[in-house]
Amino acid sequence: MYDFAYHKPASVADAVKLLAADPDAKPISGGHTLLPALKHRLNKPSALVDLSGIAEMKGIRREGNSLIIGALTKHVEVAKSDVVKAAIPALAYMASHIGDNQVRNRGTIGGSVSNNDPAADYPAAVLGLGATIHTSKRKIAADDFFQGMFTTALEEGEILVAIEFPIPEKAGYAKLKNPASRYVMAGAFISKGPAGLRVAINGAGPCVFRQSDMEAALGRNWSADAVAGVKQSADGLNSDIHGSAEYRAHLVTVMAKRAVAAAG
């Protein structure tokens, strides 16, 4: 790593101030995406602004028909939360399968979603549930948030504070992991609820995306068989030594089928 200054603000306002004052500073929470990149010197921030001391970014609560999860909430906390398990069991299931135990003990939902790694889990839940991103200055709909590989609607110095998930009637998640990295090769998060019928695909493409043909098919007939008949085009999907775009396209259908089955 290159060396950097370190700040640990106690409030969102202070964190925003620090980031505004130094355009080369970067926020960090669990660090499980940022630190590996820094260790490989892929990034040279002048300072890290450690958000982990900000109380207002923590916690899981249910408000009416929404589940609100603070950005600093660790994967293990989502996985084990009775509130999450009762409201959106598929989300708790997803959280319990991110990375490994040690990653789940440090990594946070806000970090994962802000980073928008194409092979990360959480973006699929955010998009697949039609969540709303609460930032230090506004609210952003999931459909507007994920803009491309490692790119989101967050502006410089804008901090993801919490994520508001509408509670669906049913939801399910399935993925196949990359055998080496154990990140997502292809995954599908599917839900039906206040945000409509949504199929979000992660891992397979450069950015999480909605599979509208599958959404239409499920609209006609909510069943695993309905999505099984929908073929994902391989155009634009990722291709690497672990699998061709064609293979990933095939996996999209398989994972969607499994996600529907899991949703019940």
Partner: peptide, 8 residues
């Protein structure tokens, strides 16, 4: 349990 190589 945490990975001390991924913790400042």
């Amino acid at each position: 349990s945490v990975k001390s190589c991924t913790t400042l």
